[in-house]
């Protein structure tokens, strides 16, 4: 079995995409860099010029506003404290972008930050940005972290060509979180849990969707093995920038092989 790395398309790079990576040095504990790599390569392989802006603490608002797609990962507690402080500073412009339907993927810590608050194991409450109608509570030391492989069925049609992926809808990943997230009325879950814990291990839902922003606990990282989700994000971002943009198909046989072998292992 050979896996040939795809060739660059030498088209004139008419199209371009700017990805904003929020706090790359602080929020990168669980291989989150892989999500960025996947989005970049999947643009480049289609001849779309892709650029990543590293938005570290103190970044300028004008840089943020140049971004077509936002990503934020998870981190250790100490790092999250620093990030939470800086997020307060950029709350208004970030909210505005999310409200204007700028696509974004917020994993684990990033997902929790967009909610109303995070209650730590010792009862201390960290205020969130309140953009997502949800809150997260860590029930304390006597409750185990929710750790393991997870499969979810997204509650909307993923992919730029829904008919092509109907039987390959599910998203696979790995979750590892102490906090339990509860969604409010004004937000929808990303998917139904088929295997694993999800937001809180109880209500059977995972993640959240608000306009074009997606929150999730799925690591793995999420995008390499779920190329349909990666392309869905690219589609949303490019469609918003260039009306009726159509993504070219890529050879995703290896992506699906990894996806399906993870699925086999879990079920």
């Amino acid at each position: 079995m050979k896996n040939k790395s795809s060739k660059y398309t030498l088209d004139v790079k008419r199209y371009s995409l700017t990805i904003g990576w929020l706090y790359p040095e602080l929020m990168n504990t669980y291989g989150d860099r892989g999500n960025i790599t996947v989005l970049m390569k999947r643009c480049q392989w289609r001849g779309i010029k892709a650029e990543v802006k590293h938005l570290n603490p103190g970044f300028s608002i004008s840089e943020l506003k140049k971004c077509d797609l936002l990503l934020m990962g998870g981190a250790q507690d100490k790092q999250q404290e620093i990030v939470n402080k800086d997020l307060k500073r950029v709350k208004a412009p970030l909210s505005e972008m999310i409200e204007k339907a700028t696509p974004g993927l917020y994993v684990c810590g990033g997902f929790q930050f967009l909610g109303k608050y995070y209650k730590e194991a010792d009862g201390n409450i960290i205020e969130g940005l309140g953009i997502f109608d949800l809150y997260t509570e860590n029930p304390g030391k006597n409750h185990p972290r929710l750790i393991g492989d997870i499969v979810i069925n997204p509650m909307f049609e993923l992919g730029h060509k829904p008919e092509a992926i109907s039987q390959k809808q599910v998203v696979v990943g790995f979750e590892n979180h102490g906090g339990r997230t509860h969604l409010g009325k004004n937000i929808k879950p990303l998917g139904k849990v088929l295997k694993g814990f999800g937001n809180n291990g109880k209500d059977g839902f995972e993640g959240a969707v608000y306009k074009n922003s997606f929150g999730t606990y799925l690591h793995g990282p999420i995008l390499p093995k779920n190329s349909h989700f990666a392309d869905y994000l690219l589609h949303l971002a490019l469609d918003q920038k260039y009306k009726d943009f159509e993504l070219k198909d890529l050879d995703d046989s290896l992506e699906w092989q990894a996806h399906d072998s993870a699925l086999d292992k879990i079920s």
Partner: peptide
């Protein structure tokens, strides 16, 4: 396949 995919994206 996970490792293969990692290397595919490293080209």
């Amino acid at each position: 396949y996970d490792m293969g995919l990692r290397l595919k994206y490293a080209e």
